[in-house]
Design a protein around this nucleic acid. Structure first.
Lengths: 130, 130
DNA sequence: AACCCTATCTATAAAGC
DNA sequence: TGCTTTATAGATAGGGT
């Protein structure tokens, strides 16, 4: 059942400052987060680069985007930017742990694949080949 | 005052596929990366959320965005999404290591602050208060 | 049902030719 | 403010927990 009472006033300019209204903030967060992930996805494809994004929502839920996968990019980042020397053993173990992780990693991958899928789906829907 | 001689065909649509030309790719990468970081920065401000982004360039250079800092967000992400049980000691040590990191973290912070600065600077330049 | 999140539509802002 | 694409504010509906 579609009820169209009124036309909206269209896109308004908003100042870049914290949105006071909670429900408005939630909607904006959701929309802009998906816009951000879409941009990241396009950058990956256009330039053949690897990107990981982690976002904590206002409700403290973690959202992630990763191409190819968040975990592998984090491992790589941590490997190339290692903590101070005295900590390198623990760090190395962590990197190995992540490489060998299985059950958890599968869940992570699934989540990320679902994210990617959603993005790809959106991209495919309204677009005709150019 | 801007003079335009003739109307063009307007903004061109580009296909989302790997850019073949190397220098064109480099330009696009640079522009879209800063656009992505700017969007992330706006999302942080509008919604008061925390975001970390890691990008590996075509030349394997790492670029990062983090509000408040990449490291703290990664720690939080890794803490909330822990690897399987048998690895938790190493993981815990890593988390501690990152919390206690000093010299390296200072460098990271500096890099990130410079990134933020660049973004804020760009935002300020072409915008007049509405 | 209070919260959190997502989806859809329109009009329009913003950006890039 | 030519002309076009894109992102998104606003309004609202619906879905999941």
């Amino acid at each position: 059942m579609v009820m169209k009472k009124k036309s909206s006033s269209g896109r308004q300019k908003i100042p870049i400052e914290k949105i006071p209204n909670r429900s408005h903030l939630q909607v904006t967060f959701s929309k802009r987060r998906s816009g951000l992930f879409k941009k990241a996805s396009e950058l990956c494809t256009l330039c053949g680069v690897e990107i990981a994004i982690i976002v904590f929502s206002p409700a403290e839920k973690a959202f992630s985007f990763g191409h190819p996968e968040v975990e592998s990019i984090l491992d790589r980042y941590l490997t190339r930017n290692p903590p101070p020397r005295q900590e390198s053993r623990a760090h190395q173990q962590l990197v190995e742990a992540h490489r060998n992780a299985n059950v958890h990693e599968q869940n992570m991958k699934l989540t990320q694949i679902l994210n990617q899928l959603e993005i790809e789906k959106k991209r495919g829907e309204g677009v005709r080949p150019n």
